[in-house]
Design a protein around this nucleic acid. Structure first.
Length: 564
RNA sequence: UGUCCUGUGGUGUAAUUGGCAACACGUCUGAUUCUGGAUCAGAAGAGUUCAGGUUCGAAACCUGACAGGACAACCA
């Protein structure tokens, strides 16, 4: 584990510095915050983490580590209406799985409810906050629009003593939801909407997953986030671009708090977009709730748990995160980059195995009936230390239906009547006859083998143009294989004003193949074990597997040279 | 008719802070191969959104356009 971390750190250090790291280097050079680097990853526990969060996790934990700093995990749980412990648990699992650790620095915004309340009282006393009894609609109306200034609330100049009393009554539950809010008194004519007397507290008579019924007023994000950062000693508060316009407000609250040279600083970067997928919690939630996918961990989902189930490794996700980089440019990363990362990782590590997912039976007519040979196969040509295994060969085999063509085109150089090909690690075979059923469908092939080519080479130096994978019919393990394609048919499914993203759902995003045969080596495979099925792609064992039946997910196909 | 942010090959990022645009993905050639994978060698593809300006020299600095994005939740 330590070694893996060091390796990834080494790789990371060779990468050019992104603008945030540059900023950190500058801050370090200036001696800010006593040379400390402290970041935080602050998810709201209202949904499952997706690969965009993975990027943020890698950025926060990775950058702090690189510069000798620390990273806190902090749940931003200021809205009990949407949050749940189910999400808290999944988030912790996902962060750990990605390879990061917050040690004993686990925090919740709700840890600070008391301190936030006291701080609000202080602001009221200083005449910097007031209780507003106007309706949501009126307040919103008074706020104006970005191009036009707002106007002051009639409650804006309530004396502090009175506000203190009112706020205490808010806290005590005297008022109902919507009756009133606490607002910061800043500037109703600011060109920045967030500075027009933003809400600090609203009344929410809902139990909180951690504080239960203690509170009926809850702080807003803007009122909580910077203060939590401050109290935790965060130096660099990294978030996505949509918070850029919040920064003056973040700074305003920190100004009220700051009592030394230490000061947390918010830095924004652009969120991750990937082609042919969606990345907003709202939309992912919709896909789950409305049943377009089978849960948050559906292997087609860009959630961390979905990618994990699909067979993506933490290493591949970290590599991906490094590759896409950190900027403020709002762009779209090609899914091909993600696919490249997992292929690259698995190519080096995955156990090779032969499996046929669309079987066509062949009979080797000159091979003795009842005979079974065990032939040597290499476990991973990229890693000799993984050794060899035995693969059973016999008279009746399955090959991939796709590897035979009755009337071959000139670019097709696999099996056809009269042609000779190699069966990997076993023999050269030649197809002699096609057996069809009454519907003119090919149901079987008859072939002959050349006993001299045992192991896969011909003593006379004869060449074949193709090598096919195969499995021995009697010894094969029958399995279910699930093939996945992109969930959406459009590169930017959420980017059309006139069309709902559901219109772009790919009807063929999941294909279930029930009749697949894998060589016996996989018999004892465990859930999440991954393999390369030679010539087909990388597959892993799905949790739906039972003792009777293995279920495999195709993680990603091999790069397809066929289209050349 | 506002404020802020962002514009570099198809895509994602670089350019040691002003010194003749680099890397990765993708694409396309070959070579090699018991995976049409991998590997190896190579190619095409941007003159940095545009127009001015400063400078011996600009992707970078200035001015002005243009384009895209964010901001008007008692969400985060």
């Amino acid at each position: 584990m330590v070694e893996i971390d060091n390796i990834s750190l080494d790789q990371e250090q060779k990468l050019p510095k992104n603008f945030i790291q540059q900023q950190i280097v500058d801050d370090l050079a200036e001696g800010k915050n006593e040379g400390r680097i402290h970041t935080r990853f602050p998810p709201e526990p209202n949904g499952y983490l997706h690969i965009g969060h993975a990027k943020s996790i890698c950025l926060n934990f990775g950058t702090a580590k690189k510069y000798g700093g620390l990273t806190n995990l902090r749940f931003d749980d200021t809205n009990p209406a949407k949050e749940d412990t189910e999400y808290v648990d999944s988030i912790m699992e996902d962060v750990r799985w990605l390879g990061f650790d917050w040690d004993d620095r686990l925090y919740y915004a709700s840890d600070y409810f008391e301190k936030l309340y006291d701080f609000a009282v202080q602001l009221i006393k200083e005449g910097k906050a007031y209780v507003d009894f106007q309706s949501q609609e009126v307040i919103s109306e008074q706020k104006g629009v970005p191009t036009r200034p707002g106007i002051d609330s009639p409650y804006r100049d309530t004396p502090p003593e009175e506000n203190l009393e009112l706020f205490a009554k808010m806290k005590s539950g005297f008022y109902n939801e919507g009756d009133c809010v606490l607002r910061a008194k800043i500037d109703m004519s600011s060109p920045n909407m967030h500075m027009r007397d933003p809400l600090m507290y609203r009344i929410l008579k809902q139990p909180h997953h951690r504080t239960g019924d203690i509170w009926c007023i809850y702080p807003m994000y803007d009122y909580a986030h910077g203060q939590c950062d401050y109290w935790e000693g965060i130096t660099h508060s990294i978030c996505t671009l949509e918070f850029e316009v919040h920064r003056p407000l973040y700074d305003w609250f920190v100004d009220q708090l700051q009592d030394s040279d230490y000061r947390p600083r918010q830095i924004e970067f652009s969120r991750l977009n990937i082609s042919y997928t969606v990345m907003s919690k709202r939309r992912l939630l919709q896909l789950v709730k409305e049943g377009y996918v089978n849960g948050w961990d559906d292997p087609r989902m860009p959630t961390i748990c979905g990618l994990r189930r699909r067979g993506y490794s933490p290493e591949s996700m970290r590599a991906f995160s490094d590759m896409v980089g950190i900027t403020k440019v709002d762009g779209v990363t090609d899914v091909a980059v993600l696919e490249y990362c997992i292929r690259e990782d698995l190519n080096k590590r995955a156990q090779r195995v032969m499996g046929v997912i669309d079987p066509l039976k062949i009979v080797i007519t000159n091979y003795p009936e009842g005979q079974v040979e065990l032939l040597d196969a290499i476990n991973n040509p990229e890693d000799e230390s993984m050794g060899k295994r035995k693969v059973p060969f016999s008279r009746e085999l399955y090959i991939e239906r796709e590897d035979f063509m009755e009337n071959p085109t000139n670019k097709f150089y696999r099996l056809s009547v009269g042609r000779e090909v190699r069966l990997r690690y076993s023999y050269f075979i030649r197809c002699t006859e096609i057996i069809k059923n009454s519907n003119d469908e090919i149901i079987e092939l008859h072939c002959t083998y050349d006993p001299e080519t045992r192991g896969g080479n011909s003593p006379d130096g004869r060449k074949v143009k193709a090598t096919l994978h195969w499995v021995a019919l009697a010894q094969a393990v029958k399995a279910e294989v699930r093939l996945y394609d992109r969930l959406f048919t459009d590169a930017d499914p959420g980017g059309h004003k006139d069309k709902d993203l559901l219109e772009f759902l790919n009807p063929d995003s999941l294909k279930v193949l029930k009749e697949c045969y894998i060589e016996p080596f996989v018999k004892d495979a465990k859930v999440l074990d991954s393999f390369q099925f030679e010539r087909l792609g990388y597959f892993n064992v799905d949790p739906d597997s039972t003792s009777e039946q293995l279920v495999f997910n195709r993680i990603v196909s091999l790069k397809d040279g066929c289209k050349k």
